[in-house]
């Protein structure tokens, strides 16, 4: 499934959060969306998910405009999302949460699907525990399981490894990397972790003040700006 943004704008009264975004993410590619806090990354993801109404422009997912309610529901069936700012109900056990979302997405053979995710993400030892009782690393793995419950063709990842220890972060990155390769999943990744972006993304878009100010492969951007790594490149671009 491809995502195409056509001249997309979002204004909050006089504040222009997103300005003339125009890009296409091809099926199966992993694209990084980088930028300082408040540059419009979350607003962009929110618009793709249908949570925020664009002021103008179009979002096409597999050629369908998501602003049309019927299309929005159809697209959401094949899309999922993970963010450290969104959690699962704390009083439900891990398995109960996965059942709830599995039913919501009308997943076939739900029991098998949940068992597979529990195995693959090593959730077995705490599947009967309440989600609120888990550590942040464990919660993150459960959120990842929820985001994969409908075998999404598009994954929107908003800082998926924020506040995780290096080991858990690395585990999540590896899992996402393998999952995307295996399932040809289209991924839009918003992150402040440059190592993560370098490792996962085939292309990067740098946002500042609601606009894309530079884009390319990590390697191309590093060479273009004469820096040693993506972090230095990022700092140079956003400080210019």
């Amino acid at each position: 499934m491809s995502i195409e943004l056509k001249n997309l704008n979002k204004n909050y009264e006089k504040f222009k959060a997103v300005k003339n975004l125009d890009f296409k993410i091809e099926t199966g590619s992993i694209i990084g969306l980088l930028g300082p806090n408040g540059c419009g990354k979350t607003t962009t993801i929110g618009m793709i998910l249908g949570l925020i109404k664009p002021t103008s422009g179009e979002i096409l997912v597999r050629g369908k405009n998501v602003e049309i309610e019927k299309n929005r529901i159809e697209v959401l069936e094949k899309m999922n999302f993970i963010s450290p700012y969104v959690e699962l109900p704390k009083k439900l056990t891990v398995r109960e949460n996965l059942i709830v979302y599995g039913k919501m997405y009308e997943v076939k053979n739900l029991k098998n699907k949940i068992n597979n995710l529990i195995d693959e993400l090593h959730l077995g030892e705490f599947e009967k525990k309440k989600t609120g009782e888990l550590s942040s690393g464990q919660k993150n793995r459960v959120s990842l399981a929820k985001s994969l419950i409908n075998s999404p063709e598009i994954l929107l990842l908003d800082e998926p490894t924020a506040s995780l220890d290096p080991d858990t972060g690395d585990y999540i990155r590896s899992y996402i990397e393998n999952y995307a390769k295996k399932n040809n999943t289209t991924i839009l990744l918003a992150s402040h972790n440059m190592n993560e972006v370098e490792r996962l993304c085939s292309k990067v878009m740098m946002m500042k003040g609601g606009k894309i100010i530079d884009e390319g492969t990590c390697k191309d951007l590093i060479i273009k700006h004469g820096r040693l790594n993506l972090e230095e490149t990022f700092l140079k671009i956003i400080r210019e």
Binding site: E74, V86, E87, L88, P89, M104
Partner: peptide, 18 residues
């Protein structure tokens, strides 16, 4: 309110629920 308090609210609205 339970969905808001548990910060699960956004998950519901990105699910294909009418």
């Amino acid at each position: 309110l339970e969905e808001i308090w548990s910060r699960n609210f956004t998950n519901l609205f990105v699910a294909p629920l009418k």
